[in-house]
Nucleic acid binder design. Structure first.
Lengths: 106, 106
DNA sequence: AGAAGATGCAGATAAATACCTGCATATCAA
DNA sequence: TTGATATGCAGGTATTTATCTGCATCTTCT
């Protein structure tokens, strides 16, 4: 997984909306997705290309249409790599802060 | 939580490295963090400000030093809002794709 | 074949982003 | 107090990014 591509893909609200739309109904065409977007079709295409490069979306050509499918695997890997790691110390943080402040002031 | 700020904060590799560094040792000063970064101190400051604006990092002034602490709460909320949602349909995706292709071709 | 529909490709541009340098301020320690 | 240390602030710049417009290509349907 290219974590940088995944994070950068998720950084844009339009692309997160595209993922939301595909989550509601998987396998939508470019045209269908554009109906919910309020921007030029060509712009949406670029966003979808970024999502594909991050492996968050796969597409299949069917005739003159292009169908898009969400792929949750990279998101799961982001979770494993990032969220769980930081959650492990969740409970110790207030302790760290308190100790730090107490230990150095009279 | 401002999801957009959180995602944009995580989109930069330097900022993710800062979170990693704070995960290894919480409560580091700006100077300590800079030793691991290979960029001007002022640049690191800007990254830390973005992390603070996203509430991923908190800081406390102690004399002439500034201590930084990681805050995992926004990451957890990102997980709840994003990762779990998409994971729920994880198993159905290959099915969706297969059905889509089969149903429309002779 | 020809028209309509869906998507692809390329170049232009305005805004956002990540850096930097230079100088200012505040704190500690001798 | 004075020098050294840690951080803050402001401005400048080069790169990246998001978006658009215009035109091309490829299917489908009549």
């Amino acid at each position: 997984m290219d974590a940088d591509k995944v994070f950068k893909a998720l950084a844009d609200p339009t692309r997160r909306k595209l993922l939301d739309l595909l989550c509601e109904r998987n396998g939508q065409t470019l045209g269908q997705l554009c109906e919910n977007l309020d921007m030029a079709r060509q712009s949406a295409t670029q966003h979808l290309q970024i999502l594909e490069a991050a492996n968050l979306v796969s597409s299949v050509r069917r005739g003159r249409e292009k169908l898009h499918f969400i792929n949750p695997v990279p998101l799961h890997e982001v979770y494993e790599r990032w969220v769980r790691k930081f959650e492990r110390q969740r409970l110790s943080l207030l302790h760290d802060l308190k100790k730090e402040l107490e230990g150095k002031q009279p």
